[in-house]
Design a protein around this nucleic acid. Structure first.
Length: 262
DNA sequence: CCTATAGCCTGACGGC
DNA sequence: TGCCGTCAGGCTATAG
């Protein structure tokens, strides 16, 4: 579930705790999550490197080092970073642990091993990053850009398109449902059938939902007004009170209101 | 090229 | 109590 807002909060966490530090040691507890190299070459590439800058692109976290080495993290679902002083505090599901030059440790956790970690010479070595669509919160992401982007979207369901990282960066299942709800558009609608009004509402919802989520994305729970939260706690649509319809779109569980979304 | 689907992976949860 | 099946989600690979 770490989508754009959650990864942004992981970025803040990394910046305030580990940036500027050098990696003294790398412990790999789950080699499978390292995607482009063996565990030993991963360790070798990063040991001794200093973490000098960090950024986010879509759902990826990118950490530049003082050498021509970039650490790329993808959280899959449910993973996070943790910073702690001793191995006794090592979190459950720690897949990789970095011991830093102040003795503190940085863990990359991932409950389901769907996360990925890479050490590359450039972010563009990662296919998912190379092909990534525009950042929805950048000012370059205008209504015109969005129109062009979905104009070529043809017959797919709009929700599948919103979650397609090659089209737009950083939107996953939870935020896609919320964006569609706030737009009053059914997730199953074919993209090519949307009119200009609906496209405008979608565009504004993308920006608003993601931006509003940033301040609280580091917290455990989603905001209680989210349709995901409301459905989970047995509440219905905040607009009309109907229970949410549950279906599958783009291979994902999808919640929407049959009354308020057309 | 475009779109849809299976598979990866394992914890949480419900049913028996 | 504990086993078992199902579901969840990101992405990638493969099929159509």
């Amino acid at each position: 579930m770490p989508e754009l807002p959650e990864v942004e909060s992981q970025l803040d966490y990394l910046r305030s705790n580990a940036l500027g530090r050098a990696i003294q040691k790398v412990s790999v507890f789950e080699p499978r999550i390292i995607k482009n190299s063996t565990a030993s070459s991963f360790r070798k590439a990063l040991t001794g490197r200093r973490l000098v800058a960090a950024s986010r692109r879509g759902k990826y976290l990118i950490v530049n080092t003082d050498a021509r080495r970039v650490l790329v993290l993808h959280f899959g679902m449910g993973g996070d970073l943790r910073y702690y002083p001793s191995p006794q505090q090592r979190p459950r599901f720690t897949r990789i642990e970095f011991i830093l030059d102040n003795g503190y440790r940085l863990a990359f956790t991932c409950p389901r091993n769907i996360c990925r970690v890479m050490s590359v010479s450039s972010p563009s070595d990662v296919p998912g990053l190379r092909q990534m669509g525009p950042e929805p919160l950048c000012k370059e992401f205008t209504l015109g850009v969005f129109k062009t982007l979905i104009g070529t979207g043809t017959s797919r369901a709009i929700k599948a398109l919103l979650m397609d990282q090659k089209r737009i960066a950083g939107i996953g299942n939870i935020y896609a449902d919320q964006i569609l709800f706030e737009s009053g558009v059914r997730p199953t609608r074919k993209t090519s059938d949307l009119d200009a009004t609906e496209i405008g509402r979608l565009y504004r919802s993308i920006r608003r939902v993601l931006k509003d989520a940033l301040p609280t994305a580091g917290e455990e729970a989603l905001p209680s007004h989210y349709i995901y939260s409301r459905d989970f706690s047995g509440q219905g649509c905040p607009g009309c009170g109907r229970p949410f319809e549950k279906t599958r779109v783009g291979g994902r569980t999808t919640r929407y209101c049959t009354g308020c979304q057309r």
